[in-house]
Each structure stands twice: as C-alpha cells, then as structure tokens.
Simulated scan of single mutants.
Amino acid sequence: MARLLRLIAALLVGLSDAAFGQTSTEIAPGGKLRVGMIAITVLGGVAEPVARFVGQKLGAAVEPVMYPNPEAYLQSFGKGEWDIAIGPRVLAPADKADSTANLWAISLVYVAAPGMEFPDIASVDKTGVKIGTILGAPSDRVLTREIKAAEIVRIPLSPTIAADAADLLRSGKANVFGADSGVGYPAAEALTGAKVVPGAFGTVLVAAALPKGRSPAAQALLATLVDEAKQTGVVQKAIDAKNLKGVNVVTK
C-alpha cells in the first residue's frame, strides 16, 4: 500500500517511480520527515495531521519540531532544524525558504472586555484604547502596521494563551485583545461578558515550505502533496477535529 501511494504521488507530479524515490529522499533524508510547526492549536494542531499525510505519501516517519512561539519559528529558518515547515506564510523568509500555495486561512479577531462596546473593527483604533496581542505573532505584525491611535500591549505566547488573554482583559490592562481566531474565541468563552467584535482585522495565510535550494522536483512534489491534502479533506478534517472557528481551507 505504501509503495502504491508513492507511485500515485509520483504520477501526479510527473516523476518516474525511481525519480520519486530520489525526490522523496531529498525532502525526507533517511526516511525521516522533520516538520517545523508552532505549538498552538490553530497552527501546529492543524499542521500535524497534514504532516502525517505528507509523511505517509513520502514513505517517511514524521518527527514534529515544535516551536514555542512565532519568533522561535521565524528564527529556525536557515538553520537546518527541519525538512519542511508548516506555518504562517508571513514568517517564511523568501530568501531562506520556498513556500507552497496556501493551505488554510485564519481570521484575526478582536475580543472586547466585559462592558466594552465596539460596534466594528474600525471603532477599536481610538485614543485611550489598549489593544492586547501576542508578542511577535502575525497579529502583532498587522496591529503594529495598522494601528494609529490605540496603544498596543504585548504578552508572550504560552500554552495557556487564551486564558492569559482573558486575564489581561479581566485586569483592565487591555480593553480588547487582537489575535488569531484560535485564541480569540476561546478567550471570549473563558471570560463572562467578553465578546468577539464583528469582523476581522486581518488574515493569516498558512503554507508549507522547503528550505531554500531544494530542487524544482522537490518543490513540485511537496506542492502536489499539500494540494492533495486540501482536495481529499485532510486539512478540513484537521480543522473540524479541533472545532476551530474563523479557520477555513484555502481553495485557490
């Protein structure tokens, strides 16, 4: 069965079985596929099943390489710590990696503290408003670029980030918290009276990436496999399994 799966993937990407084996080895040396990911549900939690799918098609054992925060993930590029990475496209430097098409999209949302009223996204950026966010995350990048009047309050990513966000709102140190929907919705649920502000202030696009310098055949093979993961429902099932809101498979 494993050989059949490899043969099918080889045919899809236009490689002979022998060439497929060589290209698989280029992607996953020694039959092991190290996959760099960020250790939060909306990223690593969805990426792990996708990684297992890719590893199965390559005939390789998957070894997750989890990074505790976006900055650590960003700094891993160019260091040879993984064979492929699956994470925010914006954190994959073009001079150090070649990315595939996007796999899934994550809405960036605001969670308003109890008693705070924000009718829409635009109403948040006002003088006197304090916006909490995750230090170094894509949401931080968007807010740093777009916010003109409000103050940004940054906290580090942790395994309990949704609870941390709720605590920040509860304490009054932030009036709203801006983050990916995988953090925003659980934070709102964790704090009575908190609510998600209508709309999204940005989108995080997630893609797979190879280290810079891999062959065109390797790039084509990975692109084919991640597209198959989308087309066969692997990505959607991973999103559904985590009951994630504001997260959608990218269809184009």
Rank of each mutant, 00 (worst) to 15 (best):
M1K: 10
A2P: 01
A2N: 12
R3S: 14
L5R: 13
R6K: 14
L7T: 13
A9F: 04
V13Q: 03
V13A: 14
S16Y: 01
D17W: 05
A19D: 15
A19Y: 00
F20H: 13
Q22E: 12
T23F: 10
T23Y: 08
S24V: 00
E26K: 06
I27V: 12
G30K: 07
G30M: 10
R34C: 04
R34P: 11
V35E: 01
G36S: 07
A39G: 09
I40V: 14
T41D: 15
T41S: 15
L43D: 12
V46K: 00
V46Y: 05
P49C: 10
V50R: 01
A51E: 02
F53D: 09
G55D: 08
A61Q: 03
P64A: 01
P64D: 01
V65H: 04
M66S: 08
P68I: 01
N69C: 08
Y73E: 01
Q75T: 07
K79H: 11
E81Y: 11
D83Q: 08
I84Q: 07
I86V: 12
P88C: 04
R89F: 10
V90F: 00
L91D: 09
P93F: 03
A101H: 02
A105W: 04
A105R: 14
I106S: 09
S107Q: 15
Y110H: 13
A113D: 05
E117H: 13
F118Q: 09
D120I: 11
A122S: 14
S123R: 11
G128F: 11
V129F: 07
K130Q: 10
I131Q: 00
I134T: 12
L135H: 11
S139L: 08
R141F: 07
R141H: 06
L143N: 09
L143R: 05
R145E: 12
K148G: 09
K148H: 08
A150M: 02
A150Q: 00
A150P: 12
P159C: 08
D164Y: 03
L169D: 11
G172M: 02
V176K: 03
S181D: 10
A190L: 15
L191I: 09
T192V: 11
A194M: 05
K195G: 15
V196D: 06
V196H: 06
A200M: 13
F201P: 13
V204F: 02
V206N: 09
R214Y: 12
S215E: 05
P216M: 03
L221Y: 04
L222P: 02
L222G: 00
A223M: 01
A223V: 03
V226G: 05
K237T: 13
L244T: 09
K245T: 14
G246L: 08
G246A: 07
N248S: 14
V249A: 07
